[in-house]
């Protein structure tokens, strides 16, 4: 979707402002939101792409107005209801439906060290040969998917060179809508800064973007 989250190249957000000696969480509730989202995620009622899409589905003005962990909170409340872990009535009242059976958390505190270092993966086996080779020129397609997608607007229609081949990975556009993982080849494509931004850009500079095969066409 051409949402406000797709920010690459926009103007108007001011300077980058680092904070000295920044804490990991700025308030206890931020840590709680982070941990709740991961541990509720362990029920596997949604996937990382659906999670990202739920944040992108926030109204644009709301997206811009809220902080990172406020977005996580809002999207977590949406997801637990949409994916049937709690009901809208329970969320509104803050009380569990007494008729609903009590469940057992899939992750206990003793599991946390293993969970923290567990290696999941978005790579999938595929026998489909790659359509593009490292060093080949490709054009990023001029498309405007209305759902979740990971092709930023600033590369669409632009020509670049395949830099890396990462084999097949879960395709976010499909996975976010629970239409299946539909793995396909993932590449890193190098775009000259001038191809993206025009002659004002430094001729020595480049932007490298990870793009799935379906986002690309031969030149």
């Amino acid at each position: 979707m051409n949402g406000v989250h797709d920010m690459g190249g926009m103007h108007g957000f001011g300077p980058v402002q680092p904070e000295a000696d920044e804490p990991v969480f700025h308030a206890p509730w931020e840590g709680k939101v982070y941990a709740m989202r991961r541990l509720v995620g362990a029920w596997r009622r949604w996937n990382i792409d659906a999670g990202r899409h739920s944040i992108e589905r926030m109204p644009a003005a709301e997206y811009l107005r809220t902080s990172y962990y406020e977005k996580w909170l809002q999207s977590l409340e949406m997801l637990v209801v949409e994916r049937g872990l709690i009901t809208a009535a329970e969320l509104a009242s803050g009380r569990a439906d007494p008729a609903a059976p009590k469940m057992t958390p899939p992750v206990r505190s003793a599991d946390i060290p293993a969970i923290a270092t567990a290696r999941g993966s978005s790579e999938r086996e595929s026998s489909v040969p790659p359509r593009f080779a490292i060093g080949q020129k490709v054009r990023s397609r001029k498309i405007n998917p209305v759902g979740h997608t990971r092709i930023p607007r600033y590369v669409r229609g632009r020509i670049g060179t395949v830099e890396l081949d990462h084999k097949a990975h879960v395709f976010p556009d499909s996975n976010a809508d629970f239409r299946g993982e539909a793995p396909q080849r993932l590449y890193t494509v190098r775009f000259a800064a001038r191809e993206l931004w025009g002659d004002a850009a430094n001729p020595a500079d480049a932007v490298l973007v990870d793009l799935w095969e379906e986002y690309l066409e031969p030149v």
Binding site: W29, V40, L73, L76, L91
Partner: peptide, 24 residues
Amino acid sequence: RVKALESLLVEKGLVDPAALDALI
């Protein structure tokens, strides 16, 4: 709002409160 959601998730058995603290 975060506290309310946490209480609800714990009451329903969806998360272990000690696991939240350990992850943080």
